[in-house]
């Protein structure tokens, strides 16, 4: 068995993901409310009420509670001298290896919600693929970006 990568995503990342889930549920709630109103007004069959309520409840449970939890527990990363290793996934555990010499450039991005929690995403691009480590503490993300670009500079073989 290969050892898991050591670093976990910041605890605040879980909060942010929960927040995304809540926002998504709220959106669904609005839609469900509209549908329920329509059902009441136009006298559509009443099972529509149950579907609408079920969708909202399921979304609340899965996207605001369960999925962020699993995803957060699963997310691991490690930046070593020669490669970056990332583990992620919900149902399928995926592990990605990106050699330093293949890294073309590194980006950090930060949306409004992430900014509020001073978090940032870091995207590592190779010539063919892009890999993102989400919701890192911004200082850490900046540090990581600097470190990766430092380590990646030794690359000789180009495409």
């Amino acid at each position: 068995m290969r050892a898991e990568p050591i670093h976990q995503i910041s605890r605040k990342g879980l909060t942010v993901w929960r927040l995304y889930g809540v926002l998504q549920t709220l959106l669904l709630l609005v839609i469900a409310a509209l549908v329920c109103y329509g059902t009441y007004y136009y006298e559509w069959p009443s099972f529509i009420y149950f579907i609408a309520i079920a969708v909202v409840l399921l979304s609340a449970f899965f996207s605001a509670y369960l999925f962020p939890k699993i995803r957060w527990e699963r997310w691991r990363y490690e930046v070593r001298e020669h490669e970056i290793e990332v583990q992620h996934g919900l149902f399928v555990v995926k592990r990605t290896l990106i050699p330093m010499v293949r890294v073309q450039h590194v980006d950090t991005t930060q949306g409004p919600i992430l900014k509020r929690y001073s978090l940032g995403n870091i995207s590592i691009s190779t010539a063919a693929t892009v890999h993102t480590i989400p919701a890192l503490v911004m200082d850490e993300a900046d540090g990581l970006r600097a470190r990766i670009s430092e380590l990646a500079r030794v690359a000789e073989d180009d495409v």
Binding site: G89, F91, V92, V93, K94, L97, I98, T126, A128, T129
Partner: peptide, 8 residues
């Protein structure tokens, strides 16, 4: 460029 393993 990169390798990935996946496991359900």
């Amino acid at each position: 460029q990169s390798m990935e393993s996946s496991q359900t």
